[in-house]
Amino acid sequence: MTRNTRILMSIVYWAFVVYLFVPLLLMVLMGFKDSNFIGFPIKSWTLDWYIGVFKDSEVVSVFLYSTVIAVTSTLISLTIGTWISVLLAGRSFFGRIIIFGLTILPAVIPGIISAISFRIFANLLGIQTGMFAIIWAHAVHNVPFVVLVVMARLATLPKSHTEAAMDLGADKIVSFFRVTLPYLKPALIGAGVFCMLLSFDDFVRSFFLGGYKPTLPVLIFSKLRSGMSPEINAIATVVLVMTAVMGIWAERSMRRMGKGT
């Protein structure tokens, strides 16, 4: 590539970075505005909105509610996803490709349709809208991501490692828990954090399956519909910081997995 195209591309890259970050930075800034009215310019500054987030018992309880949903659905996804991965990564059998296709299915269904189908299915099963329904929908939606990450990691596990465990007297269960699972650890951390973020940030499924109590994105959405306020900025910023920290941590543990054996 010539020098010019190189410079041009670096400009495009940095423009893209600005495009991604500026709206979020503005949102963070607006949370410091000492006024009820959302809009520029910001003339005086305050921390009250941020303090308010932690004082508002509704926000705090919704926050905890979202966290419980994220953690529970992630644990389910990790268990089921790992189980499916072990089956699919093992010896081939009739119908394996079909199982794989069905495993990936929730990941390719557009969000709204996924939410609607869960809503209808929950009704068929007699599941009330609310926490259980959301956990279930999030767990199903996240399984494909777990399977993709865990299968990629499993593919790099030398067959000799589990054979060595069996050779030394371990049955397949012991071999899985003592050799395979520790080997999968970084993948499980990465996939787990990714699932938590997906669940924590999910709007459409939580919206259609939620009962009386909203999750955090649903709360922000309903507040937005009744008008913008710096309070929302403060809530959104807390979410932003948390997800960014978790995301970076997960990314780093995934990277380490690439390096380690």
């Binding site: 030398p158 000799s160 490692h161 054979e163 060595a164 465990a165 050779d167 003592r178 050799v179 520790p182 080997y183 650890k185 380690g260 054996t261």
Partner: peptide, 11 residues
Amino acid sequence: MVFQDYALFPH
């Protein structure tokens, strides 16, 4: 058995 790649458990 001593495996070709030794198969020592890395963790």
